[in-house]
Simulated scan of single mutants.
Amino acid sequence: MNELDDMRLFVRAVAAGSLSAAGRELGFSPAVGSKRLARLEARLGVRLLQRSSRRLALTDEGAIYLERCQGILADIDDAEAELTQGRQQARGLLRVTSTVALGRRCVGPLAAEFMREHPDVTVQVSLSDALVDLIEEGFDCAVRIGGPADSRLVARRLGPNRRVLCATPDYLRRRGVPRSLEDLVDHDCILQERIATRQSDWLFMPADPSVSPSPRTVTVQGRLVTDNGEQAHDWALAGLGLVRRAVWDVVDELDDGRLVEVLPEWAGEVGPLQLVFPSRRLLPARTRLFIDALAARFEHSKDQARVRAPAPDARKAKRRR
Results as ranks from 00 to 15, higher is better:
225 V>P: 00
23 G>A: 03
275 L>V: 04
245 R>V: 05
319 R>L: 00
267 A>I: 03
313 D>N: 03
239 G>F: 14
136 E>Y: 08
95 R>G: 01
56 L>G: 06
101 A>W: 02
310 P>C: 11
33 G>C: 10
302 K>W: 11
23 G>W: 08
106 C>Q: 11
197 T>E: 09
106 C>K: 04
71 G>F: 05
168 T>Q: 09
50 Q>L: 07
99 T>M: 10
51 R>L: 01
212 S>P: 00
57 A>C: 06
182 E>A: 15
158 L>Y: 01
308 R>S: 11
153 L>H: 10
221 Q>W: 13
101 A>N: 07
90 A>R: 08
225 V>K: 01
96 V>P: 01
50 Q>R: 10
264 P>D: 03
303 D>I: 03
308 R>L: 15
96 V>S: 01
8 R>N: 12
169 P>H: 07
141 C>P: 02
22 A>E: 05
234 D>K: 06
236 A>H: 10
312 P>T: 03
261 E>Q: 15
207 A>D: 12
142 A>N: 07
69 C>G: 05
32 V>M: 09
151 S>P: 12
316 K>Q: 10
226 T>L: 01
272 P>K: 02
299 E>M: 13
26 L>Y: 05
78 D>A: 12
108 G>Y: 02
188 D>A: 13
10 F>N: 07
223 R>C: 04
259 L>W: 02
82 E>G: 08
236 A>S: 09
304 Q>W: 10
51 R>I: 10
301 S>A: 13
52 S>I: 00
4 L>W: 11
1 M>K: 01
166 C>P: 06
138 G>N: 04
170 D>K: 10
275 L>D: 08
23 G>L: 12
38 A>G: 06
24 R>K: 11
195 I>Y: 13
113 E>R: 12
134 L>F: 15
263 L>E: 00
96 V>C: 03
254 L>W: 02
144 R>Q: 13
33 G>S: 06
261 E>C: 14
284 P>V: 02
225 V>W: 01
22 A>Q: 03
222 G>V: 11
235 W>Y: 13
2 N>D: 09
114 F>A: 02
251 V>E: 11
232 A>L: 11
299 E>K: 15
248 W>T: 09
135 I>W: 06
192 Q>Y: 02
311 A>I: 01
95 R>I: 08
156 R>E: 15
174 R>A: 15
285 A>H: 07
295 A>R: 04
40 L>T: 05
189 C>G: 04
12 R>P: 02
80 E>F: 04
34 S>F: 11
149 A>C: 04
36 R>V: 04
29 S>T: 13
232 A>Y: 01
279 S>E: 13
282 L>V: 06
308 R>Y: 09
9 L>W: 11
202 W>Y: 12
46 V>K: 14
320 R>I: 00
236 A>N: 07
242 L>D: 09
97 T>A: 06
191 L>A: 05
105 R>I: 00
13 A>N: 05
26 L>R: 06
156 R>L: 14
265 E>T: 00
27 G>R: 03
314 A>G: 02
206 P>A: 04
210 S>V: 13
92 G>E: 07
147 G>C: 05
147 G>S: 14
146 G>R: 08
